[in-house]
Write a protein that binds this DNA or RNA. Structure first.
Lengths: 327, 327
DNA sequence: ATGAAAGCGCTAACAA
DNA sequence: TTGTTAGCGCTTTCAT
């Protein structure tokens, strides 16, 4: 920068002012500086700028997801894209950080506190999450996608998993099914637990715990496993609510393998409205999850906090039922 | 840090030495410093450290992919995970950066040159890519996943797309098909162009340009479109090589819609061995792409460069044919 | 083994 | 409008 100043015949201070919006810089100085920058091939050093400004203009997006799921979950990619777009418009650089091992988690917490990042979006946190703890204790501007119970009063953007689960289960019941089961995944996550709660709500007194099979992940494989178990326990089942589209796809496979038709013998509904839903045969009735908007809203929340606005910490988005042919 | 030094009764220099490996620090000093760090709640500032060290211990992974594909391509996620693992082992923080709009590209190039990142992995670059140009002119340690023609002598890790395409086409021909076509996607990318070249190689003199339909993206939708066009132009087609599993899945859908059976009427093969392949019905014969290893090797390459080793810039990985039931 | 001091490249407060 | 200067928080000679 000192070179630029010399070439332009001005002081470093003036160059700095030019670089930061150009107020209080005369036209003469401006053109001289522009020429000098060109000649010298000047590239500002962001580390230095970050140091003095205490800002990096970068925001992290943490994906804390087991291996297999990240690969398989189209929602995450949409969230990412939505967040990136919002950050981009505000001229922030989004950096997606993956927490895949405990070593990752440890390094990440250090990284986050290092001042190289101004704020953070957390996707798919689980209750009791080490990263969550680190972040809340760091008081870094943050926004969660989803709403784990233990984030205190941190900002979050979520959908009404429970209400939506209730809605779609009722809709399924309305097709005349009397033995409706559920493949309930990821009960260690708010979304998973809430979807189950909504299912129970909808069934009311006719709820039968026998008809719920719990599996660990929102995955195709677990859906298949869960459905098989359900089929074995309650062969008279005629409707299934799967915790996610991937789970539903797995369930449909198990159903097919067992010789049941969908929606003839068994009606199936999912959750997410991800690319899985249309890939199913028949296309899946499901709950539309506005993944890109979730990402976008989370980004906007962090941006707002960065601007000093800490109100409106809870955003809830609509997630309507999308009825197709699987039930 | 000055606080820590005071509490421990030593100088900042000693604290710094402790922080950086602890050589030339007495046991007394060490314990005093450790206690002081604890008491003060000291967190090192990475921006300051980056400034003086000219190193951030962070590496970028750039995904330059149109919106839709990123969401749909399971390979990218695997590459990411593989790279992250290798970086993690070396105590580097991986930051995934998305280039989704031209605005992104512009911001990214600035970001990369800012010194906040020590090196970079580039996934799915296209020929003439603005980011590629920026990186090569920046001489930032870099490694490409795939091998665009215009990266000069930059490091890359790739598979032999052409050879593998040749192999699987021959294998398909060996099932007795005589009118083999191809849905060729992404010809603007090295992988796409090479797969087509391999197809042409395999067919030799019996190659008929009429039987190739070119589509822009490695996507399910384009696969469906491409297959429909092929079917219309050459109704006697009895074998198809699709540029990717997603394309193959789309093609199978089009085939089904046209009343053709797979593999009875038409044999279909894909490329990638992604989660699409097993989701197809029947399961897809395809080329296994070692996505996680590609990511891992790219990471190792950048790491090597960071350590001053600039040899071995070209890594090639095996990608065997996996034969299933779709042909 | 340790302390003092000189920067890393930049911004911002102050004076002019 | 501009130049001067004092840091931002850390590492790293160079003495000691």
């Amino acid at each position: 920068m000192i070179d630029v100043a010399e070439h332009a015949g001005v002081s470093r201070g003036t160059v700095s002012r030019y670089l930061n919006g150009g107020r209080y810089v005369s036209d003469d100085a401006r053109t001289a500086i522009e020429a000098a920058i060109e000649r010298v091939g000047f590239i500002p050093n962001r580390a230095a700028r970050s140091l003095v400004m205490q800002r990096s203009q970068a925001i992290g997006l943490i994906v804390h997801e087991p291996h297999s799921l990240f690969v398989q979950d189209p929602n995450i990619a949409s969230i990412l894209l939505g967040a990136n777009e919002a950050m981009s418009e505000a001229d922030y650089q989004m950096a997606c950080l993956i927490a895949d091992s405990s070593r990752d988690v440890e390094r990440l917490t250090k990284f986050l506190s290092g001042g190289l990042i101004d704020g953070v979006i957390i996707v798919s946190a689980r209750e009791g999450d080490a990263i969550t703890k680190a972040i809340t204790s760091l008081d870094l501007p943050a926004a969660f996608v989803g709403h784990p119970r233990d984030i205190g009063d941190a900002a979050f953007v979520a959908i009404d998993n429970r209400g939506a689960a209730r809605d779609i289960t009722r809709r399924l019941a309305a097709t005349g099914r009397s033995r409706i089961g559920m493949v309930a995944a990821a009960l260690d996550r708010d979304s998973g637990a809430d979807r189950l709660a909504g299912f129970v709500d909808a069934l009311g007194t006719s709820f039968d715990p026998q008809l719920v099979e719990s599996v660990p992940l929102y995955s195709h494989a677990d859906g298949e496993r869960g459905m098989r178990a359900l089929l074995e326990r309650c062969p008279d089942i005629d409707g299934v609510f799967a915790s996610s589209d991937a789970v539903a796809a797995g369930a449909m496979e198990a159903l097919r393998a067992a010789g049941r038709t969908v929606p003839g013998d068994v009606g199936v509904v999912g959750f997410d409205d991800s690319s899985w839903a249309l890939r199913c045969d028949p296309p899946l009735s499901t709950v539309h999850q506005p993944a890109a908007e979730l990402g976008r809203e989370a980004a906007l929340s962090v941006l707002r906090q960065l601007a000093g606005d800490f109100s409106a910490q809870a955003v809830r988005l609509e997630c309507p039922v999308v009825w197709r042919d699987s039930a």
